[in-house]
């Protein structure tokens, strides 16, 4: 993954990332891989804010960010890139400003829209990896279809109440999102109960999955779904399977 034109590390970057360059298996090569990577995050809300913060902090070179609408008071319990002073103004502006405060070297491609059938191809074409943080299954399934078509890895993160789930889709090797959820489930409601600490926990883990896929260091949750409940701290990992009749990655697709 080398979409960034200048993956060399400056002396300043060596300093900024010195705590992680010494992680076994990471080193300068891993750090240059992060600098050379372009990651799509959609949306940049409760989950995506934390994914974006962690990837910006880790030194990913470029983030492609899609999120529509203006900052609402009800965003502020979990959407850590939104600020009180930005209520009523575009969320994506708050996101970009906060990320650049943390990492001014970060390159961003920001879109003040959520993922749609019209923009998904262009967004994925700009990206080496996708982190799906969207609340609507229509958006998630659009990104999944494009990820499979372009063989772009996609980290899937989700949350509910005090619970969260995470898996990493490696097209051609693992089940895709449609193998797990073939259709938009009728019982799903856009607004659901959740704490910011829950979206933050799975956002951090999703960022780590992205870092592992980009650098090749560690084992991502490929073909496995991590599911956990912070109410009783039960963590389970489930082996997931490709559906032979999957409308996206199955043999008939």
């Amino acid at each position: 993954m080398t979409s960034h034109p200048d993956p060399e590390l400056s002396a300043h970057e060596q300093d900024v990332y010195s705590w992680q360059i010494t992680v076994p298996g990471h080193g300068d090569a891993g750090q240059m891989a992060l600098k050379g990577a372009s990651v799509l995050i959609s949306r940049v809300g409760g989950l995506g804010s934390v994914v974006a913060l962690e990837l910006a902090a880790a030194g990913v070179g470029r983030l492609v960010l899609a999120h529509g609408g203006d900052v609402q008071p009800s965003d502020l319990n979990r959407q850590l890139l939104m600020t009180h002073d930005w209520i009523g103004k575009p969320r994506i502006e708050s996101v970009e400003r906060r990320l650049k405060e943390l990492n001014p070297r970060l390159e961003t491609l920001c879109l003040a829209e959520n993922v749609t059938a019209e923009n998904v191809q262009g967004l994925v074409a700009e990206s080496d990896l996708i982190v799906d943080c969207a609340p609507l299954f229509e958006e998630r399934l659009l990104m999944n279809r494009e990820a499979v078509a372009t063989e772009t890895p996609m980290v899937e993160a989700a949350m509910y109440e005090l619970q969260a789930q995470l898996t990493t889709i490696l097209p051609g090797r693992t089940p895709c999102l449609a193998c797990i959820t073939p259709h938009s489930p009728p019982a799903w409601k856009r607004r659901f109960p959740v704490f910011g600490a829950v979206s933050g926990s799975v956002g951090c883990m999703a960022a780590m999955e992205a870092i592992k896929v980009i650098t090749g260091n560690g084992e991502p949750l490929a073909g496995k779904l991590l599911t956990y409940d912070l109410r009783d701290m039960r963590f389970l990992t489930i082996g997931i399977q490709r559906r032979p009749d999957c409308p996206v990655c199955g043999s008939a697709s």
Partner: peptide, 10 residues
């Protein structure tokens, strides 16, 4: 048996 309905981000 572990059973889950689909959940999402947001």
């Amino acid at each position: 048996l572990v059973l889950s309905s689909p959940i999402a981000g947001g």
